[in-house]
Design a protein around this nucleic acid. Structure first.
Length: 61
DNA sequence: TTAATTGA
DNA sequence: TCAATTAA
């Protein structure tokens, strides 16, 4: 099986590229009584710009 | 203080 | 519209 770095996630950067990045922070964004989504804070290594992106539902937060 | 992130 | 988070 391919080596997977512990917390890297496939994300679409603001620059429009799909790449594996590790979020600086990750948390659950959910209204009370609803499932919500997991969100990660990333920095695009190309531009240095910060952006938020959905994480897989099974991502360990 | 706000934008931006999902989706029920 | 709601939820948490934080760079800008």
């Amino acid at each position: 099986m391919p080596m997977t770095y512990k917390k890297a996630v496939k994300v679409k950067t603001p620059g429009g590229k799909e790449m594996d990045l590790t979020p600086e922070k990750a948390w659950t964004l959910a209204p009370k009584g609803r499932k919500g989504v997991k969100i990660g804070l990333f920095k695009d290594p190309e531009t240095g710009k910060y952006f938020r992106h959905k994480l897989p539902d099974d991502y360990a937060v």
